[in-house]
Every structure is written in structure tokens, then in C-alpha cells.
Design a protein around this nucleic acid. Structure first.
Lengths: 217, 217
DNA sequence: TTTTGTGAAGCATTTCACAGCT
DNA sequence: AGCTGTGAAATGCTTCACAAAA
């Protein structure tokens, strides 16, 4: 931070997310110090790339020494806007919704603040201390609880309607677990958590000529 | 296919996956014909980009007319190596694993072929007609049923061990739902399905100076 | 006339080599 | 001596303008 911010390649942002994931993993394993070399190896990029990516935002290491895991982690969270809580809601409390409600990976960054469903059996239930509300209450609750991201885990045919309601209510991002393309204004970020998304990385390998022969029958 | 294959930008591959998603959505809505313009709009890129991306692989449209949804979809699936079934297994039949087992988004490309767990309560149960096996049987079953991709939905502390076993058994890709970084050989593709992955797109917005002021307290 | 397909120009990103701290 | 930080060179990607086809 505190810098003229030239223009940051989008690819850099994706990599910063990866570096952050690696730093959290290192921290968990009790490692305090790292280097551009180590980060590069784990992220499968070059050490030049790591240093350049970080240099867009500032200088967080010590020459001749490397980076302090905790410091760099904090700085990356700051850069990525993950140094504050993001309010989350889950729409659709089927098995996937319930599984996500118990997901241990929200970390210090995301906070579940509401659950929605339309099934009278589910509305009123308490999950992790939060009452499941009817979808009709979405707009009001999203505003009251400062919810910025919605996780959509409803059946495919209901997903677009739910997305419209979330957008209308003012969320900034949608994580879509339903296997359909959502139409939303372009200032709302949609991330598709489907099998195509999951396997796009695998496609890099498939497209690699060496593998291709072997894998395609 | 059938072409000199220059070198394909990685970014192109990611976009092909997006185009495919859009085509599947169009097909579902009964649309048969589309254009680089329409694809561009839905994918949030330029029409030039769409045409260039496709041109790396061949020419699939009709000048003056556009593209046939079904044809282009088939060609993209072919390019991406999704024109064959990929065998999947799920390791960890907790709620997330079970929810994924019922996930309707596998489409024509992915096929569930095995489930694994260590809990004696779960081993032996049948889910979607497939018996849950003990983790000890993983290597054998992966080989016998030609499983190429493993979905890891075990607790964080068990994830690395499971990943090792999957790699040893010969899978090509891992979808990791556990919130930890996995160490695998670089010829195995790992995709992280965690909240950082899901929200990296949101970070693009956060990094956009206009939004930044407004969102960061 | 419309919309694709594509070489070439323009722009962005990555790589590199080394200067700069510790 | 070691590893970061960074301008400049090299590479790669995107945009463009227009030819080609229906």
C-alpha cells in the first residue's frame, strides 16, 4: 500500500491469492520465515514472478533474509481486502448448504450471518446459532446484517431468481454452486463452483501435447 | 484439432471453459445459434477475443451467420478433453461428500465411480447404487474402475494423507475441498475449492480503485 | 450485408540481470 | 554473502482492420 498503484495485472491478483493460501499453510506448520524461492516453488511460478508481484504493492521482505510469514500474510490480506470480515449468507439449506454451514475454511475473513430457504420444515431451525429465515426476508436481512456475499445452493431452476434477489438486496459477490450460468450486472462478481470450474486446471494438462496423446483415446 | 497447434495462451483455455459453460446454458434455454458478439457479452470479453481464442484450434462458425450452439459446444468439449467420461471418486462421505454425490452438475463428462470413508458406519452403505468402500481399498478400486479424478472432502488433518494415496493410485487431478495446501507432484492438477478460490474474483473488484474507497473502512 | 477468421500492430506481462540493503 | 526490489529487454497476449465466405 501507500504507493502510486500503476496498473496491476489480473494474473497478479490470482497469484496473490495463491501466495496467501501458501502462507497460511506455512503458518499452520509453524514456519515463520520464507523466501521468494520457496513461495515460487509451491505456487509453481518463478521467484522473479513472486518478487515482481509483490513489488507492485510495496516491499515486504528483508534483503539477504527473506519474508516473515506472518508479516507477508498480513500484508497480502490487506492488499486483497481480506483484512476485514465479509458477511456471508447461504441461500438453500439442503445438504450442500448445511455442509457449507459447517465448513471450517471460512477463517478470519468470512462470517456466516444468515441462512435462507423456502421449505417450512427448515425455516425456523437453528444452525450454528442462526435461525433459518424464509427467502422473503432476504432483502431486509441482507441490509441489516451487512451481508456482502451470497452462496447459492438452491436447485438449478431456482438459481436465477435467487441471484436476482441477492443483487437487488445489494450483495457484491455470488458464489454459485448451482450448475447454471447466472445473469447479473457486471459490477457483481460471480464465481462458479461447478465441475467445469474445478477442472479447468486439469484442462491445462490435457492440452499439453505430451499428455494429450496418452489420455485421449 | 487437426492443426499445427501454435502455442495456446493459458488464458485462452480458461476462457474456453467459460464459453462452454455459456453454450450449455444457451442449449438448455433452447437457443441453437449464437455469435462471437453474444458469447463475448456473456463472458465479459471482446468479440475479437472470442474469435481469436477459437481460431487457435480451428474454425467452427459460418461467416455471415455465426455459430451453431451444439456444434461449438461439441468442438469445445473435444478441445478441452471433455468428450469422454472422466471417472471420479469421492473420499470422505460426510455431509459435503454426500451432497456432492447428489450434485446434478456432473453432466455428460463426469461419472462417479467410487466412494471412500474410514467410518465403519458408512463403509458398506450404498449411495446412488455404489457401495462405500474403506479407504484401504482405494488403490485397487482406482485402478479397476479407471478413476482419474479424486474429490477430497475429508477433514483438513487427513487431506494430505488422502492426497498421497490418490497420487500413488494414479489419479490425474484432485479437487480439494479441505482448507489446506496439498503437496503433490507437479504433473497432478490440484484445484482448490475453498473460500479464497471462490472469492479471488471478488478481489478484482476490491482492487479496482473506484470500489476500494467505498468498501474498505 | 453480415459475421467469421487472421496477420500485423500495439500493449501488457514476464523474465532477466544486477543494484541495493541487511 | 545472501536475497530482495526494480528498470529494461524479451516475450506473449490482445486488439484491430480487413479479407474471405455465406
Amino acid at each position: 500500500m501507500s504507493r502510486e498503484t500503476p496498473k496491476i495485472p489480473n494474473a497478479t491478483i490470482s497469484r496473490l491469492v495463491t501466495y496467501l493460501r501458501i502462507l497460511e499453510s506455512l503458518e499452520e506448520r509453524g514456519v515463520n520465515r520464507t523466501s521468494s524461492e520457496q513461495l515460487a516453488e509451491e505456487a509453481q511460478v518463478t521467484a522473479f514472478q513472486v518478487r515482481k508481484d509483490l513489488a507492485y504493492f510495496g516491499s515486504y521482505g528483508t534483503r539477504g533474509v527473506g519474508y516473515t510469514v506472518q508479516v507477508l500474510k498480513r500484508e497480502l490480506r490487506q492488499i486483497l481486502g481480506l483484512n476485514r470480515k465479509w458477511g456471508l449468507c447461504i441461500v438453500g439449506m439442503g445438504r450442500l448448504g448445511q455442509a457449507l454451514a459447517d465448513y471450517p475454511g471460512f477463517g478470519e475473513t468470512f462470517e456466516l450471518r444468515a441462512f435462507f430457504d423456502v421449505d417450512p420444515e427448515k425455516v425456523g431451525q437453528r444452525i450454528r446459532g442462526i435461525e433459518v429465515q424464509h427467502l422473503n426476508d432476504l432483502a431486509r436481512t441482507v441490509a441489516e446484517r451487512h451481508i456482502e456475499v451470497g452462496l447459492v445452493t438452491v436447485p438449478a431452476e431456482a438459481a436465477q431468481t435467487v441471484a436476482d434477489q441477492l443483487v437487488e438486496a445489494g450483495v457484491r459477490g455470488i458464489l454459485n454452486f448451482a450448475p447454471v450460468v447466472l445473469e447479473v450486472p457486471k459490477e457483481v462478481a460471480v464465481e462458479y463452483v461447478d465441475f467445469l470450474a474445478g477442472l479447468s486446471r486439469l484442462s491445462f494438462f490435457i492440452l499439453n501435447p505430451k499428455w494429450r496423446e496418452e489420455m485421449m483415446g
